[in-house]
Simulated assay, not measured.
Amino acid sequence: MKLFKKNLIDKKHKKMIFCTLGAVLLAGLVFFFSYFHVSKVEVMGTARYSDEEVKSMALQGAFTDNSVLAVLLHSRVDVEDVPFVEGFNITRLSHNSICISVREKKAVGCIPYLDSYVYFDRNGIFIESSHTRDELVPFFDGIQVSHVIQGEKLPIKGSSVLTTAVALSTIFQKNDVIPDHIEFDSSYQITLTYGDVQVMLGKDEYLEDKMIRVSAILPKLSGEKGILHMENVTDSSKLITFEREVDEEDTTTSIDTTSAYENAIANWHGGYDEEGDYTGEGEYDANMNYVGPKPTEESIAANGDWLGGYMEDGSYTGYGQLDKDGNYVGPNPNDTSDEEDYTEESNWDDQEEDDYEE
């Protein structure tokens, strides 16, 4: 009888212990899934897809709403059917937040092939194709291929073309000046198109130096139509000319900026800052008269066929309405700033302007 009662008590104790353990385990699970429930997701590594698109593509497996289990089970997600994406990495930021890092296929350029755009990486490997063009990737025309196989190197004609394309793409990304169109002609001369402005780079020489100057000149050619010649830029020559279309018949005019720049810099008397200290770049002369910024080859080239910028005394300010020979040529038609600012700081009075107009 005593043995029976003892066994009964032991069973009750065991049952209580199991119930207690079950309750503790359940409470732990509730705490675990509530405390580590993901309420914030950060996305990084792509400008191609929105955060919501990335979340829907990366967080598809089980327990992706738990910051601990999502990292344990899905820290690396590989995909095959998402354009330009190799996969995703998931990391935990805090108890309720995770970060999705997008591993993108790095396309450096695209070329036309049949009715599609073929994208390639810096090694010339065909990584993606699309019927629509990605404006963030440089588009190269004139690069010819006989066939394409995804995952394999493009059979590009011309041994140096790929090297040039990769170099240009790197420069474009660095200077944030991706052109609308890049063309290689039959002799591999390079032409860039930015809206209505064509930039003739010439051969694959001094590309970085040329593009630094292009990025400085292009903003000053806004609204213009013509050809910017950079073919003659070398380490010893900085000859830049801009052919502006002046009528509907596409008549153009060409200005040699080299001599124009030499005249301007020789007659610019600035270099002093507002404190009267000489810096070489200041916009005041020794008498603290405002004489405009120091002329550069880029600023002269951006003037096109306007040869003004000179004052009555022959000094160059950039806003004077005379040419170097003292002929009135009017205000700079390429200047988008307020003319009153120039007038106020240049000691020109209304009477003098009226005399020139007469």
Rank of each mutant, 00 (worst) to 15 (best):
L218E: 10
N332S: 04
T193G: 06
E274W: 00
S159I: 12
E42R: 05
K210R: 14
R76N: 15
T234C: 13
S187V: 11
L154I: 05
I240E: 02
I265L: 08
G318S: 10
S39V: 08
S159T: 14
S116R: 12
K203C: 01
G202E: 14
Q173C: 11
F4R: 13
I125P: 00
M311Q: 05
L322A: 03
N123H: 05
L168W: 07
V214S: 06
S116M: 12
S346E: 03
V85C: 11
D335Y: 11
E205R: 11
I240H: 01
E353N: 01
E262D: 15
E205Q: 12
S169P: 02
A23C: 10
D180N: 15
A167S: 15
H74E: 11
A107Q: 05
E339Y: 02
V166T: 07
E248H: 05
E42S: 14
N66P: 03
S94W: 04
T164V: 14
D273C: 07
G330S: 07
V79N: 04
K2I: 06
S236H: 11
I300H: 03
K238Y: 13
K12F: 09
I149A: 10
V30H: 05
F32L: 02
A216S: 07
S101V: 02
L239D: 14
A165V: 09
L93C: 07
V214M: 14
L154E: 06
H13M: 13
M57P: 00
F36Q: 08
N89G: 08
V148I: 15
L168T: 05
